[in-house]
Every structure is written in structure tokens, then in C-alpha cells.
Design a protein around this nucleic acid. Structure first.
Lengths: 188, 188
DNA sequence: CTGATTTCTTAAGATATCTTAAGAACTTTT
DNA sequence: AAAAGTTCTTAAGATATCTTAAGAAATCAG
């Protein structure tokens, strides 16, 4: 748990043992049951979450009442609603545990203090944010370029693990395909 | 020019006059003519650009030979290909001046040095990166939710300036609509 | 001012994907 | 093991958007 977070920090910056202790003391361990919400549409997002184990999805309900999944996140990923967290505005998405999920979470206020006390963290979160930009651009770039069938094949190939852990209709939603049409695609 | 950059830094962090001078000395002024490329597909992106004046687009050529625009950037925006710049990989997009455009640009190597010397810059670029995440998510979130007609109307309403400065077929490309279909939409 | 290039429009037929509705196959709970 | 809930499939008709091809309008270069 502790080591898992420490390893992640060490990927990008070096913290002294004391610094890491200070950082770690600001995190809280939480376990969510399947279907529990970490963040509800309309609330202001107060936490950044580091996933120790499990699977989180980010989704909203569209005007027709259909769930639209915008992101999945698994072990060793950071998750939050950046817009709501950074600007302290009401969230337009829900964060929900797809499986039983354990996270380390940190409050915005605590993080703000830490960033001042340990400037190396600025670098860390700059890199995390840049990686997020890269990931999102790759995702949508691919999405825009490819048709439904290729999107699905790519998804299964790329993260075969997901195809196991997530029901098909959620993959469909993430890929912006109706489950019915995905069914057709899988046939032929 | 100098002030414009300084103002932008001051939005998020405070630099002493001396620090700003050091920062500024790493930037180079460049003017690109209409259609000049700042970055070519396949090259590794070596610069971050701060636009003083003008308009830059980011685009690639798809398998059918059609230009697909992924981003526009104007005065006071930062632009680069984050993936290529951060990971020093070949770029999958072109950056091109849509109008005559003046930028302040900084080399990756120089920026890396600056970030070490002036840690406050880490915070600055963390915030810039977070804002980019927010902007991209808003953009694609909206894109996914809305149909072509609403995307177009929103675009014109949101940045009316653009509708003047950018040919219609580029707006179509950015909104992922064929120019022919956009023509139909504008009629009825 | 004229020819060349770039940008925009029209219209008809083609296609990817959605919608609706229903039932089958699983999975979890009792 | 029955009931209840969740997930997946099938198929037919509907629709948003694309493709192709052509010409009109506007802008740029000589």
C-alpha cells in the first residue's frame, strides 16, 4: 500500500524518507464496494485518488438517460475530475467503483499545503498532468480516426484485462457504440 | 511581447524581475508566414510555443489523404505537441500557421534547465498542463454529446472571432464534419 | 484586370450506426 | 433451485452523416 504509492512517486521524483512520510500522512485509505460512488454529479470534487486495487469508471447520464462512460482507471492510476478538483466547480461526471476498490485519497486542501512544503511534488504532478494530456489525446485521436469495429478490436487487444473485468455494455459505452451494435460487430 | 509573456506567468506564479529575465532570455522570437510549419509529422518536437499574435492549427493527414484538425491556438495560448515534446517521440501531427504568426518559443533542453533553476516554473507548467486537460476534456466531452449542427452553432457562438479568421472547411474539419455536410447544415 | 487557386455549395445515392422491442443467457440473492 | 436482477443478442426499420461529382463564388498572384 505505502510502498505502492512510494514506488509511483519514485518513478518521477526522489523524496527523502521523511518527505515521503509527510506526504503519506496526508493520504487516507478507503475501500469502496462495487457501485459505490466516489464523486457524484453536481458535487465539488474534493479528492485526488490513487488506486491501490480495483477499477473506477467516470461517467455521466446524457439527456436520453443513458450512461456515458468517459474513463476507466485501474491499479496505479490517479483519478479525479480535474476540472472540478482544480477549479472547485460542480462536477459534471460521477466516479464509481466498478469492482470493490481500494484507494489512497488526498484532500485538495492538504495537497495544496503539501505542494508548498515539498516543491518536488509540483514536478511530480506536472508530469502526471502531462501524461494525462497525452493519454487523453491518444484516446480521442484514435477514437476520431477509427470506426466502431476497429475501436473495439483495439480496445480488447490493448487492455485485454478490461474485457474480463468490465461488462461488455460498459466497453460499448466507453467506445461510444450502442451495446446492440457492438453485438452485431462481434458476430461478423 | 516581453510584457505579454510576463503577464501570463504572473497569472499563476510570482517571479522576481531577475528570474523573469532569466526565463525570458531562454525564449526566442519567431515569426511564421501563413502556411509555414512549426512542426512536421515525423519530427521530434523540440519547442514549446507561446503565441504572441496569430493563429496556429494542429492537424494530421488521415489514410484517405484528408486533413484532420485537432486543435486551434491563438494569442496567449501555449502550443506544442505534448506527446512528442515530453517523450521526445516523433510527432503524429503538424503544427502550422493559419495566419502570419509571431511566437516566443523555448527549446526543450533550455526549459529542462530552467525548471531546475526556478522551481516555481514547475508549478506554472503544472497549472498549464492541468488547464490543458480541462480544455481537452471539455472539448471532446462536448463533441461526444452533441450532433454536428449543435457543435457548429456552439463553435461559432463560443469563439465568434474564429469564424472570421479561419476558413469554414477548417472549422468543419475541427468539428469532424465534412465541409459538404456543414454547408447543408448552414442552409436549413 | 485576368487567370489561377482556394473556398463554398448543391444534390443524389451510399453507409455506418442508432432505435426499438423482445427475448435469451447469465449471475446473484433468497 | 426459484426468483430477481443484470447482461447480451437478434433483427427490422430509421437517421445522421459521408461520398462523389460538379459547378459557383471568392480570393490571390502576376
Amino acid at each position: 500500500m505505502k510502498t505502492q504509492l512510494q514506488n509511483y512517486f519514485n518513478r518521477h521524483i526522489s523524496l527523502t524518507e521523511a518527505q515521503f512520510e509527510e506526504v503519506y500522512s496526508c493520504f487516507e485509505i478507503k475501500t469502496y464496494q462495487k457501485k459505490d460512488l466516489l464523486l457524484r454529479e453536481g458535487e465539488v470534487c474534493q479528492h485526488k485518488y490513487f488506486i491501490i486495487d480495483g477499477l473506477i469508471r467516470s461517467y455521466y447520464i446524457d439527456d436520453k438517460g443513458t450512461e456515458k462512460i468517459t474513463q476507466f482507471a485501474i491499479e496505479n492510476w490517479w483519478v479525479t475530475n480535474t476540472e472540478s478538483f482544480a477549479l472547485q466547480r460542480p462536477s459534471n461526471i460521477n466516479l464509481q467503483a466498478v469492482e470493490e476498490t481500494t484507494v489512497l485519497r488526498i484532500k485538495k486542501d492538504d495537497l495544496d499545503v503539501l505542494l508548498v512544503e515539498i516543491p518536488a511534488l509540483e514536478k511530480f504532478f506536472r508530469i502526471v498532468a502531462e501524461n494525462m494530456v497525452i493519454a487523453i489525446q491518444r484516446r480521442y485521436g484514435f477514437y476520431m480516426k477509427m470506426n466502431s469495429k476497429i475501436r473495439y478490436e483495439h480496445f480488447v487487444e490493448w487492455i485485454p484485462d478490461f474485457a474480463q473485468r468490465v461488462p461488455l455494455y460498459m466497453i460499448a459505452s466507453y467506445l461510444d457504440i450502442t451495446p446492440e451494435y457492438l453485438s452485431q460487430l462481434r458476430k461478423g
